[in-house]
Simulated scan of single mutants.
Amino acid sequence: MAKAVHLGAWFLLGCIASSSVAWLGALHPALTRVMWVIYIMCAAALVVVLLTDDAVRPFLKLSEHDYYALLIAIAVSIVLGGMLSWLLGG
């Protein structure tokens, strides 16, 4: 139970961070470029981690299912945080 709460807290932290980046990008037109740079860097990092999964997974000492679940959770938190900020009119 404690592990689920811990992972849920990290997921919510990712959503909050993504929402904050999207909100800052909506605040001023000059920050929109910074927002896109942050999102593009996150997407590039996820692609690199997916391509190097055989080298990264043993380093993190995760099983294959846990590793891909972690990557999916990171991607969903980034998308969910940004979309939620957009849907709320930010």
Rank of each mutant, 00 (worst) to 15 (best):
L80H: 06
A30F: 08
V76G: 03
H6L: 14
A45Q: 12
D54R: 15
V56Y: 00
L12H: 03
W36C: 05
G82H: 00
L62F: 00
Y68P: 00
L84T: 12
P58A: 01
V56H: 01
A9Q: 04
W10Y: 15
V5T: 12
L84C: 05
T32S: 11
A30M: 08
I40P: 03
G90S: 08
A30Y: 02
G89T: 07
W10D: 02
L70F: 06
V5M: 13
L84Q: 06
M1L: 14
S63A: 09
S19H: 08
G89M: 07
A30R: 09
A55C: 09
I38R: 03
Y39S: 02
G82C: 01
A75S: 14
K3H: 09
L87F: 05
M41D: 05
V48A: 06
D54N: 13
V34Q: 07
V34D: 09
V34Y: 01
R57A: 03
A4P: 01
Y67V: 02
G14S: 01
L62S: 00
L88V: 08
R33K: 08
L80D: 04
D53G: 05
R33Y: 09
S19P: 07
R57Q: 10
A4E: 05
V76C: 10
L88H: 05
A30L: 07
L60E: 01
H6Y: 13
W36N: 11
D66F: 00
L50R: 13
R57W: 06
A26D: 07
L60P: 02
A30W: 05
I40R: 08
R57V: 02
V76F: 15
V56D: 00
S63Y: 03
G81R: 01
R57M: 07
V34M: 10
A9P: 04
Y39K: 01
A26R: 03
T52H: 14
H6A: 09
F59S: 11
M83E: 08
L24M: 11
L80V: 11
G25P: 04
A55P: 06
V34R: 07
L87E: 06
L51F: 14
Y68C: 00
M41Y: 11
T52K: 15
L7C: 03
S20H: 10
V34L: 14
A17S: 08
L88Y: 05
C42D: 09
P29I: 04
K3W: 10
M1F: 11
K3Q: 13
L31C: 13
H6K: 12
S19A: 15
L13S: 13
L70E: 01
L84G: 12
A2P: 00
V47D: 00
V21Q: 02
F59H: 11
S77C: 08
M1R: 12
P29S: 05
R33V: 12
G82S: 00
V48C: 03
A45D: 08
W10F: 15
F11Y: 15
R33G: 14
W36M: 06
W86K: 13
L46D: 00
I38P: 10
S18W: 03
